[in-house]
């Protein structure tokens, strides 16, 4: 598949934007963790996400997207990142409950890609992602004991946002345009089921209840297909300046 169908380009753009903002958030929080080991892991994950973005961005460029635009030369409302990464409004537990679902959802979307010449790259990314996702789950398990109310409240917001990033439940094998084009080997509906089952299992028997999570989100009628979310919102202008490196231009080495 040399030329990807438009919905597939949007699908990849949303993954890239999510990874770009994930890398940014991991970097921002890499000195704020409860232990040095959390910080080292966060810094490492940040570097890996940026590495993934670099590779995926070049594939998007081959599909006609401008590289500078991808790397931040655009309005905040043009980013299609998972909405749970727009801002982190809380402390470390909220940060974990915001980044973990976004990272897992982005991996599930990537893992579904069936394009043959991307498989080696995806395998390499999967080797990094194993440790991101395992770390997040280990952390969420301990936080479910030490800060259950905060985690529960955060997940009630972030899980539906991550589900909106994955896509609406109505996108099954007959209606999901990315699946029907042959770009992915499983539909959004199937990815959602795996995602929901994972978090249901993870928190089963803990003090965190997911009963208040809207697992039906997003509403397919109001879902923005290009930005893979509902209800607008975006990263901040300060985030954008940091992504573009505006203030750091002074220190650039050529």
């Amino acid at each position: 598949m040399d030329e990807w169908p438009d919905p597939a380009v949007d699908y990849m753009q949303a993954i890239v934007d999510t990874k770009l903002i994930l890398g940014h958030r991991y970097g921002q929080w890499a000195l704020a963790g409860p232990s040095l080991e959390d910080d080292i892991g966060g810094a490492s994950a940040s570097q890996e996400e940026i590495g993934h973005v670099r590779q995926l961005a070049s594939r998007l460029q081959a599909q006609g997207r401008d590289l500078e635009w991808i790397h931040g030369d655009r309005d905040a409302t043009e980013f299609a990142n998972a909405a749970c990464l727009d801002s982190i409004d809380g402390e470390w537990p909220t940060y974990m409950a915001s980044t973990a679902p976004a990272d897992r959802a982005a991996w599930y979307l990537l893992d579904a890609i069936a394009i043959e010449d991307l498989q080696g790259m995806l395998t390499k990314m999967g080797e990094d992602e194993y440790f991101h996702l395992e770390y997040h789950d280990a952390r969420l398990e301990t936080l479910a004991e030490s800060a259950p109310d905060t985690i529960q409240a955060a997940l009630e917001t972030t899980l539906p946002q991550a589900l909106s990033f994955i896509g609406p439940a109505t996108y099954d094998e007959e209606t999901d345009p990315v699946f029907t084009s042959g770009f992915t080997d499983r539909s959004v509906a199937e990815i959602r089921e795996a995602f929901i089952a994972h978090y249901t299992d993870l928190f089963e028997g803990t003090a965190v209840s997911l009963d208040g999570v809207d697992f039906d989100a997003p509403d397919p009628d109001t879902w923005d297909e290009a930005r893979r979310r509902v209800g607008g919102g975006s990263i901040s202008e300060a985030d954008l300046r940091q992504l573009r490196g505006t203030e750091n231009k002074l220190f650039e080495i050529n």
Partner: peptide, 13 residues
Amino acid sequence: MSTSHADTGAADT
């Protein structure tokens, strides 16, 4: 791709 990469982290040896 299979769903197993992130779950096993295993490379093809």
